[in-house]
Computed example of a mutant assay.
Amino acid sequence: MVKEKILIVDDEESLIKVLSIAFKKHNYYVHEATSAKQALKILEQEPIDVVISDIKMPEVSGLDLLEKVKKNSPNTGFILLTAYASLDSAIKALRSGADDYLTKPFEVEELLIRMDKVMSKYRVQREADYLRSLFIKGGKKIVGLEDGLKEVADKLRKAAPVDATILLQGESGTGKELLAKLIHQWSSRNKGPLVTVNCAAIPETLLESELFGHKKGSFTGANADKEGLFKIADGGTIFLDEIGDVSPLIQVKLLRAIQEKEITPLGATSSIKIDVRIVVATNRDLKKMVDKNEFREDLFYRINVVPVYIPPLRERQQDIINLAEFFVDKFS
């Protein structure tokens, strides 16, 4: 198995050594840099799976490094570290493309857990990119929709024009995001926005503000009003990926958004009406989570209006032949 590569960037050499030892024990290949400039030289020479960088560094900051990395290599994961935490800087980091944000001091085990999540995300992203390559002529056809995924496609074509909430269930890498895009294209809302939210990738402390927005002064660092993603998706579709990972607090607010078709930004005294089609996805068994009191039963029934199971490729043997033929044609 090929070792995944990490680049640690921090002007504290002692911290680099501690993290390097920990990651090597978990079978990662580790590169080290004490400045953003040194990190960029390494990135020019070597493909890196995830960069872990301090924000505050001399000459070139971690945010500047993040911008350069994401511009040149969008599928490289990025985790920012900082000793100067504020919600405003966290939101800025995530909106700049960071996959996660951790405040110093932290437990190494916590960073390892977050690292694993980011690594998993990009493993899935690589498979998703592969699935996107199966689009033919502007997405009018996807390899598999007429064979192994025919039943799924037929169900989605019927459900797409109706504003019912759709729950996409399947393993990571089965193309749930791709199918959410098709639902939007096939719906009457296809002229409106499609907003995609990976609920597992946004820390719980930020997810509420990202989804529902906030008012100026509602918390430290809230220097201006901010529209939430539900409002940004108004008139279109919002796709909530990894819905099984949201906290009980967010579950309550999502339930209200679905039931009442309205949201209340953080710090607001009144609610805002929204007109949004909701598509959700998960790789978890929500029914079992409900039985264990890990997921709200009322929310489950609200999102389980049109349940769609997406079988993995191993259950669609005909598609393996179709994919092989597709790539032979494409690259010959």
Rank of each mutant, 00 (worst) to 15 (best):
K3C: 02
K3G: 02
K5H: 15
D11L: 07
D11V: 06
E13T: 13
S14A: 15
I16C: 11
V18C: 07
V18L: 14
L19C: 08
S20A: 12
S20D: 05
S20Y: 00
F23C: 01
F23S: 01
F23Y: 10
K24P: 09
H26A: 14
N27W: 13
H31P: 04
A36F: 06
K37W: 12
Q38A: 13
L43V: 12
L43M: 14
P47A: 10
V50S: 01
V50Y: 02
V51K: 10
I52K: 05
I52T: 13
M57V: 09
P58R: 07
P58N: 04
E59G: 11
E59W: 06
E59L: 13
V60R: 05
V60L: 13
S61F: 14
L63Y: 14
L66H: 00
K68G: 10
V69M: 06
P74H: 12
N75K: 13
D88H: 08
I91W: 01
K92D: 13
A93V: 08
L94Q: 01
L94I: 04
L94G: 01
S96F: 12
G97W: 06
D100A: 13
Y101M: 14
F106Y: 02
L111Y: 11
L112V: 08
D116M: 11
D116L: 12
K117E: 07
K117M: 10
Y122R: 01
R123P: 09
R126N: 14
E127Q: 15
D129L: 15
R132F: 15
S133Y: 12
G138N: 12
G138I: 05
K141G: 03
G144S: 03
L145W: 13
K150H: 03
V152C: 04
V152M: 04
A153K: 00
D154A: 11
K155S: 06
R157W: 02
K158L: 10
A159K: 00
P161M: 01
V162R: 05
D163A: 06
D163Q: 12
A164I: 07
I166N: 02
L167M: 08
L167N: 03
L167C: 06
G170L: 02
G173Q: 08
G175A: 12
L178G: 06
L178V: 15
I183T: 07
Q185I: 00
Q185L: 05
W186R: 07
N190L: 01
K191M: 08
I202A: 04
L206N: 04
S209T: 07
E210T: 11
L211R: 05
K215E: 09
G217K: 00
S218P: 04
A222W: 09
A224R: 10
E227S: 13
G236Y: 00
T237I: 02
F239K: 05
G244W: 10
S247V: 07
L249M: 10
I250Q: 02
I250M: 06
V252S: 15
V252W: 11
L254G: 04
R256L: 05
I258W: 00
I258N: 03
E260S: 11
T264N: 10
G267F: 14
T269R: 13
S270D: 11
I272D: 08
K273Y: 06
D275K: 09
I278N: 02
V279C: 06
V280P: 08
T282W: 11
K287G: 10
D291Y: 09
F295L: 06
L299G: 05
F300Y: 15
F300M: 08
R302W: 10
I303R: 02
N304P: 09
R314V: 00
Q317S: 12
Q318V: 11
A324L: 09
E325K: 08
F327E: 04
F327H: 09
